[in-house]
Design a protein around this nucleic acid. Sequence first.
DNA 1: TGGCATCCTGTACTTCAGGCCAATACCGAA
DNA 2: TTCGGTATTGGCCTGAAGTACAGGATGCCA
Lengths: 210, 210
Amino acid sequence: MIRTDKLILVSHDPGLLEHWKKALGSSKALCLSQFSALSGSELPVGATVWIDGDLPGLPAWKEPIWASLLRTSHIVCTSSMPKNVAAIQALDAGCSAFVHAFADFKTLKQVQQVVVSGQIWVGRDLMQQLLAGANKAGAMITEMDRGWDVTLTSREKEIAVLAANGASNKAIAANCSITERTVKAHLAAIFEKLNLTDRLQLALRVHGIN
Amino acid sequence: MIRTDKLILVSHDPGLLEHWKKALGSSKALCLSQFSALSGSELPVGATVWIDGDLPGLPAWKEPIWASLLRTSHIVCTSSMPKNVAAIQALDAGCSAFVHAFADFKTLKQVQQVVVSGQIWVGRDLMQQLLAGANKAGAMITEMDRGWDVTLTSREKEIAVLAANGASNKAIAANCSITERTVKAHLAAIFEKLNLTDRLQLALRVHGIN
DNA sequence: TGGCATCCTGTACTTCAGGCCAATACCGAA
DNA sequence: TTCGGTATTGGCCTGAAGTACAGGATGCCA
């Protein structure tokens, strides 16, 4: 089921290599203990490369070396201490999967199958995190779009912009020729309308940060 | 391999039902032609439900009816005209997969396997879109790291980002497991290095406003 | 004309942010 | 081993920000 001639396992941990070989049912997979060995050898086109993300000396995903590898093969990145940030970086670079290095046999086999069929495999937790991110990113655009000032009066808008750009109450008062007290009143009204607590929140809203 | 007694297919299109049955190799799956039939019948716990997303009268994913279904079974949502927005909504609601209704047999079978093992299956295109979204949401922090933070220590950067996003000293202290006093010390150092006066200026600098 | 919204101002209070002075602990470099 | 950079915390103080509770003035609309 799994073509052993196109399976490459890279880890400095003999136990992990053994785990993978058993899981994938391929005793004859090519095992490498250093990343440099991988970049040096010529890969068979269409190979699947399992890489131990905890391998010392692993280049950053930005490095061009990865681009050439990814063009000709599927890369499965693993880690014994999976972190979502690392996973996103790896997948964004072009990896086909990110999975716990010592996941159970069934899962690893499934990963292999999904990957060789050209799809991307991602674990449940990370998947849900990605969805949350997609929702946040999408909701922001549709919801927040320049709507922060619709409920504000023109005077309030004026003061909101000044405050959002770092002006103190005193400076705003001078700029608008009103009392500092009045500035506070306007800001209180602004916070109430926009459901904010302070001028920093206001700044983030006005500048579209969140 | 696939338990036919726990497989439920829901579509008003006989051709699609046939396609699924062939793909999943289960001639005896329970076929329903209306969503109402699904909500009425009691599902076997752990069932896998394939739903035709183009089915007329399908309730919105927000509806509570889905919650109860998702508690006891895996739901695979499909569409003949897949749109990423719809896919994200479905997956976010709790579906285990979103796939083209008439995908090839091999893919559909793979989806089924992934889903029954408790994972989430997502097609390559959508997956990459999600990754892009995750990057956009998270990238602000990593990408805006241009210039403003070169003189800061890693700890200072951490605190600067939190403060610039509206966190109070107390909140930062809790987040970093340090004293509020220490937060103030770090912020003082940050202001000194960046030649700023307060956290609002910091927010503007960090977010590239001025 | 009587509400209603907007704009303006006052006093008093609480909370928070930031400045100033000072100290301890760790670690790597000279 | 001393020295400088970093991380940590303390107390004390001032001023800014924000809230609560008050009003007064204008203009608009039913």
